[in-house]
Simulated scan of single mutants.
Amino acid sequence: MILGYSRLYPPDPIERELPDAAAALALLQERRPDIPARIDAMVARITDGRGAPRHRDAALLGLARLGRRHGGFGDDPHDYHNEDHVLELAERRLTRVIDGLGPNGLPTDDALALLLFAACHDLRQRETRDVPGPIGGNEAASIAETFRILDTCGFDRGPDRDLYLALELMIAGSTFDPRPLPHPDAEDMARVAGGSLARGLGLWLDGEHSEWNADAGAHRGERLGRLAADLDTANVGEEFPLLAESAQRLCRERERRQGRSLALPESGRPCLGFLSGGQITYFFDLHRFCSREGERVFGPRKLVNGPLVRRVSQRLQQRFEHQPPANGQAVLDAFAALCREEAG
């Protein structure tokens, strides 16, 4: 489509192991038999019971491959980027958007595209090669695999071009820059904003792919990309226990990927930094709503959560002010206890 990443990242062994929706369904029926029915229910909800078999198959295939590669079905389990993250976007958050915008607020085709975004945007989490520009290597590789999933599930890059293009831009826009502001070393203005690339994706496209402005499908994809980014980061606007739980999962995943055991002393300070000042930076500095729809649905709860995030961060720092944490697990336990107290 516009970005050209589909040729850069070839299939890996997981794609060959799970080549199609039938293989995905077989794996899920063995390991998580609840999931196919839950995806079916979301498709039925979005389509008023009419169904969308190709979208259903693509969602199951994306979810199963993520679970096999980085989740509970394989040997590289990630605490956050796994099959349950797909479900929290595809069920809980997308349902809130549908309900919050009302019966005419989200067209069926847009909701189905967001369902596929939930299933496919985190397919790859271990890429070591980035692409030029602000889009991450994990996102570029996920775009390439998503195109192959759509092909396998009966979509066509001609008649269904707008769906491919929308998912390309949605996944690209989900690239998240965690660096604190400002970014004097950022290579372009799209990165200077920090947080989700979706906020600056149009700006970057103007400079690198100016033809996108004449493409109605690209404009739809960019618009959906901003809403997709809000779905991906909507933990800020969920009930506080859900926000706290997501922070703990991200912390555990971060330590696992750094090779630090939560039982050892060297994980103590990194966990303390992530769950105190790191949450302040994410919540107040890096996170910005990218779409009017996302702010309308999730914004009110973010306002409620703000003081709770500040208090927990301050209290956690005070807890270990005079005695460093014994290890990362001690920090996680203290954070969980403080969050329960603040949530009441």
Rank of each mutant, 00 (worst) to 15 (best):
A326K: 13
L264N: 02
L275K: 12
M1G: 10
R220D: 12
L3Y: 05
R254L: 12
R31E: 00
G102C: 09
A229R: 02
L112S: 08
E30L: 14
L338W: 13
N327L: 03
G225Y: 01
P77I: 09
L205G: 01
P103I: 14
P241R: 03
G195Q: 01
V309S: 07
A22Y: 04
V304H: 04
F283Y: 11
A190F: 06
A22V: 14
L66A: 04
G67D: 00
E88K: 13
L197K: 03
L203T: 13
G278F: 00
F155G: 02
L8R: 13
R254D: 11
N235D: 12
A263G: 13
D122F: 04
R260I: 07
E145M: 15
R311F: 00
G306P: 08
R32D: 05
C290I: 06
D232H: 05
D156F: 10
P180F: 02
A140S: 02
P265L: 02
T281I: 14
L303H: 08
L28I: 05
E222L: 15
G268Q: 07
P103N: 13
F117M: 08
A234C: 11
E88T: 15
P33H: 00
E127A: 13
P180E: 02
G49M: 12
R68W: 01
G4Q: 09
A193Y: 08
H78S: 10
R223H: 08
R296F: 10
T175R: 14
T95F: 03
I2M: 14
L338F: 07
D188P: 04
L112Y: 03
L308I: 14
D185Y: 02
T95G: 13
P270Q: 07
D230G: 06
R54P: 12
R226N: 13
H81R: 06
D122L: 02
D188Q: 11
P324D: 14
G237C: 11
P324K: 13
L114H: 05
A24F: 01
N235T: 08
R157D: 08
F284W: 06
V309F: 11
R148F: 03
A229T: 09
Q323W: 10
G221F: 06
A119R: 06
L94A: 07
L60Y: 04
E255D: 04
R269A: 14
A119E: 07
L231N: 05
H322A: 15
R54H: 13
I143W: 05
R191C: 10
Q279T: 11
L332Q: 04
V297A: 08
P159Y: 02
D333R: 03
M1T: 07
F283C: 09
R32C: 01
R257M: 06
A190E: 02
A41G: 06
D75F: 09
F289S: 02
I14K: 04
P107Y: 11
V192R: 15
